[in-house]
Nucleic acid binder design. Structure first.
Lengths: 203, 203, 203, 203
DNA sequence: TATGAATGAGCTTTCATTCAT
DNA sequence: AATGAATGAAAGCTCATTCAT
């Protein structure tokens, strides 16, 4: 009698366990054997759940999406003021720990794979979606700020939001390779201060 | 007597020709044979100029550095006003064409390789140096702005400069995978407008 | 469940089949593909059983050891008189056939490899061990001869045994490259006669 | 005007300088570049004096022959008594220093190459010739001993001489891989003592 | 003559994937 | 369903040899 397993659950289980490996060694350098070991199954078993090595990445990218959505959602739940919310979002986005670094690394590799081979559009779907959602969120915050007279009315909310959301990744990337020189907390604080200067908007 | 060649020149020649390949396929997927073909020499010849495949990357990263330094230098030469200079720098940094994309891709891969294996610190040396130089530049611009009474004196120039310079990469990265949705020109313009407005000192 | 194989058995199987190849072509000239072909498996399969090409040699050297031990052991089992035993040992040591030649060739190459690179001490471990065991054996035979008044009492058994055992290899080596000129049977017989001259010891 | 060089002299010059290299690393592991470096010429120059890498070995083997002939000749010049001469020859043959080891190693590799590929008969020509000459020499010594009543007349001089001469190489080979355990001086002395005692005629 | 730049055949080794058990 | 033994394509790298200078 066949063992009863939830196929989909097993896929995300394996994918989730692969993330740390992928972050540490990169996709190419991570072998199927590595992934099987990390998942505690045999090498052949992996092929019951994924047709190819690349398919694992696909599922990994979904896992990343849920992971990040959860983390951002939690951060924004209980704040009302739009500008406070924006500050909280930035703080959250810039809060880097080991898990975040792992996600960021894999996510960068997905970006690269996509850039190298446009046939794998799926890989960056999650990045694009995340970026889109966050941009909408920030844009709404800015609009809310405008409505409450707390933000300059001639700002193009969409464009600025896009810039802001995009900028996070640049800061994290640089921080990750030069932790000694870059004080990300200070940079974040200064940026928030600059962004939300009281007295804004100008006349 | 054997053919006389300039060893160093040949190295950068080959490295330069490899950049497009690396951008298109990635380091791992680019074979020595590919690079040899691109350089129009035999596979073995590559090993006269580079001891290992990785050494090619090292030289490539230097070439990237010169390439970028040149492009930024040119952009800033003839502008006097510090804030105009800052705007010009941002415009330049955000000016993406095929060459810039290639450089950005390779540079991202160098970032990844470094993150995966810290033993190749050299690979990100150029990234760190570039980031450091640009941050100093922008920081000086902000300070100059302060001195001329054109910029808010409370700003932490270093921290804000670090943010700005880092942000470029984030924006470019997102633009590159979602060109249809992101109008980088508009985003850049809006950001510059926002920056100069916010930076201006309060009355 | 995967095919069940006895890993250790497969290793010696492959090693054993490799011996003839190594004897015929030498270690360097024998490719992994050759060994795989001889073993009737794919090239990759070899690497399931050996981490490197050199590891094959290691196992080969062990196989040689067992091979030789067996052959000597059998020769000495049923002889009681120590001097007769010594004669039998010499006859056995000098009994050269194709298998012995193969072993001798590989064993010479192991010697060379060790001399070239002392880091592979393991390779000659079997040679040293075999030499040591045989020397002890012969030394005991001489001592037994002494005790029975059949051998000169002031002989240094150890030293002489060492010489005798070592000399075998020299004789075989010369025989193997000049079979037409060297009548190994006659040389062996004459040497045994000389060694065991009746009437010994002298007064 | 072409530089005047003595072609044959250059060949032996290069070959002579290659011996130490070959002894240290082995023929395969010694590159043409290594040999060129050791000879202080360019890699291409080697090919003015040797058609192939193997041809270098051929000349090396001749150099070895002269080297050895010279060393044996000198040792035997001034001794009259045949048995003393035999003892002196054995002492000389067993006198191992760095040069002798190098020669022995290369000579062993020549042996191996010949065994692997009988088409290179030339390589062992020197070994065979040396062995033949020495055997004749020793055989003559034994005969001379017989004639003077100092050696057992039943001995087959040829066969025993062949054994003796062959045995040297076996002893040296074992000594070289187990110098700590084997006291070659003692072994040699004991063997000479044994030999001369046994060889002496019965009353 | 002397040189070393250029070459590509050929090697070891890795690893995604298949498949018999 | 689960496994790991088997496989061979593919890649980096070495080096004897050639040849233009």
């Amino acid at each position: 009698m066949p063992k009863i397993v939830n196929h989909e659950k097993m896929r995300s289980e394996i994918a989730r366990k692969a993330i740390a490996l992928l972050a540490k060694k990169g996709f190419q350098a991570t072998t199927i054997q590595d992934i099987a070991n990390a998942a505690g199954v045999g090498k052949g078993t992996i092929y019951h759940y994924f047709r190819t090595k690349e398919e694992i990445l696909l599922v990994v990218s979904n896992e990343l999406f849920y992971e990040m959505e959860r983390s951002f959602g939690a951060a924004l739940l209980r704040i009302d003021d739009p500008l406070d919310k924006m500050a909280a979002l930035i703080e959250e986005a810039m809060h880097v720990n080991e898990d975040v670094e792992n996600i960021f690394i894999v996510y960068t590799e997905l970006w690269l794979i996509n850039v190298h081979s446009h046939k794998y559009q799926d890989f960056v779907g999650v990045i694009k979606k995340m970026h889109h959602d966050l941009t909408a969120l920030v844009s709404n915050m800015i609009d809310a700020g405008k409505n409450r007279g707390r933000w300059d009315r001639d700002t193009d909310s969409q464009a600025l939001a896009c810039y802001l959301v995009s900028s996070f990744d640049g800061v994290i990337a640089h921080y990750m390779i030069d932790k000694e020189k870059i004080d990300i907390k200070k940079v974040t604080k200064e940026f928030i201060r600059f962004l939300l200067q009281r007295g804004a908007p100008r006349k």
